[in-house]
Design a protein around this nucleic acid. Structure first.
Lengths: 340, 340
DNA sequence: TTGTAAGCGTTATCAG
DNA sequence: CTGATAACGCTTACAA
């Protein structure tokens, strides 16, 4: 591999001057500049990024922590983040935590060891006091996660309110015994959603049977399991709030094989407005999050923090969500609003 | 940030000895080792990876080039690759080419500038002679792509045969006028698939109407467009081969809204055995690729190449696929095999 | 078993 | 406008 030294020698100039050309700095005569360009061409010279990193203390790389890419919500998130980061000239490292605390910390280590300039946490399972020390090594921005701290910027929707609205909608459709399926470990987001869910029940004078809370429901397969669980219940469950369209789809799939009628026998609500929620028969009522905007904003905020010397005020940016009502909750008994 | 120098000073030893401890090398007394460990602890020392990279000429990072993460096939691919790479201690950089030649080359630049030790190409739109020179900078392994060259290892299924089988299946189900929808630009894979498709038609004495070839069909939305296109045809099309379950799902979705009956009016075949192919009504006949195995094998081969000094023989590893027959091609007229 | 010293390839400072 | 020279933080012969 040719180095800057080789180029300098071939061009009959110093490393400094070559460096100036590489970095588009002023104070180099056109003539010498051309000479250097020629030399670089001839040698097929490319600056070594490890050396640049060491010297400049910047990596132009961002780590994005998320549970798993195969969850379409996070797939979309990282797709947009990578695109945006790429525009800013940043690389993106995928860090799948699989909701494991240890994995999360391992990846945060990238910040400490200066392998990345900043971190996006779209997965947050550790307690804040464990995460906080990492802030010394570089900026962290939360996306789709919330933390009761004024030391980080956060980009998210109001999950509490969204799940309140969704639950209220189920109730308005005549559901009285509603189950609650949640994904993964308890994170702040899931706590918020649960709160909204419970609040809606309370406001409508309904009780929540703790036995109807299902944990670790993540994908279609889990959804099928959830359906079996619901079917086993002695007292009939007539509605379910799921934290994911995939789980909702799994329930519908299993239900249709058991001759169950959705939404008459069971009204179902999903989350995230994935393609699948539109394609299922019946189509799934869901909550749309502006994923792309959130992703791009997150990168923007992070990159700004990386570039600024003096720490700015942390921002908490709350995006609007939208409850999209579809057939999976449109119960005959109450002929209400519809579709899309 | 504490450096190795600081640790050495605090422990009253040399940088060399500290380095030995960091890298678990022998020839350090327990006593001194502990002293050093203590010092590292006290200072919160973490080795700076940029410096290590520069010195050791290795980055422990891999770039994975793919069209887009939101295509579930590639989502699964990168999910498995990241997991496997992480086991080997490697980071993964996501590189979405969006099927753009220039983007592909930009990302290959990561290899030249030594930002990554190796590259996985699961997206390959440039001609080989453009890619080849990059091999000088480090190993490249193709995954789900094929190239007529003995200079790279490739991991893939036999797309030609798979698409032959799929097409033959359509024909056996009584289809005689079959459309062909393909994704993105022309890559070697798409060429192979097209060949298999045409061969099957030929073998069964059917002609292919070039007007029935649809390009750039990538997702559900495109699938809806494909349906409109088919509907406009004067001569009725009774079968379609799509290169993607998403496109197939889009066609079914649009068809169901137009009162079309699948598969009686139109038999549809997808590709990749995504969850959606099972969930659609009717369920979609598709070709399963062993994504996870392919992903893990790819990383294994690449990491081995990175670690070996002397170049090994390039491997071409062909995995088995499986044609999964479901309702979307089960035509009454021919009461044949079924489901899953 | 430990330490010295020479880089790895860049960039920034400062003097010319 | 250009060029020495000194870092950046770490590893590794080689010497002791």
């Amino acid at each position: 591999m040719a180095t800057i030294e080789d180029v300098a020698r071939l061009a009959g100039l110093s490393r400094t001057t070559v460096s100036r050309v590489i970095n588009d700095q002023p104070y180099v005569t056109e003539e010498k500049k051309e000479k250097i360009m020629d030399a670089m061409q001839q040698l097929g010279y490319v600056p070594n990024s490890s050396a640049r990193r060491l010297r400049s203390q910047r990596t132009e790389t961002i780590a994005v922590l998320l549970p798993r890419v195969t969850n379409p919500f996070f797939g979309h998130l990282i797709e947009s983040m990578e695109r945006k980061a790429s525009e800013y000239g940043y690389q993106v490292i995928v860090c799948q935590t699989h909701d494991k605390k240890q994995k999360e910390l391992d990846y945060l280590q990238l910040l400490k060891t200066k392998q990345v300039d900043g971190v996006v946490m779209a997965s947050l399972t550790n307690d804040w006091d464990v995460i906080e020390p990492y802030l010394e090594s570089g900026p962290i921005v939360l996306c789709n996660e919330y933390m009761d701290s004024d030391q980080v910027s956060m980009i998210h929707i109001d999950h509490r309110q969204a799940s309140y609205d969704a639950t209220a909608h189920l109730i308005e459709q005549g559901c009285t015994r509603i189950a609650y399926a949640t994904g993964a470990q308890e994170t702040h987001i899931t706590r918020q959603r649960k709160e909204g869910f419970l609040q809606a029940l309370t406001d409508f004078n309904l009780a929540f049977d703790e036995n109807l809370e299902i944990r670790n429901a993540l994908d279609v397969k889990d959804g099928q399991g959830v359906f079996s669980f619901l079917q086993e219940q002695e007292e009939k469950v007539d509605g379910i709030f799921t934290g994911s369209d995939e789980v909702a789809a799994g329930i519908i799939y299993a239900a249709s094989q058991s001759g169950f009628t959705i939404p008459e026998d069971l009204a179902i609500i999903g989350f995230d407005n994935q393609m699948i929620s539109l394609l299922m028969v019946p189509a799934i009522t869901t909550v749309r999050q502006p994923v792309e905007e959130m992703a791009m904003k997150t990168i923007q905020v992070l990159v700004e923090k990386i570039k600024k010397e003096q720490p700015e005020d942390e921002q908490q940016i709350v995006y609007n969500y939208e409850l999209i009502k579809r057939k999976s909750t449109e119960r005959m008994s109450m002929k209400e609003s519809a579709s899309s």
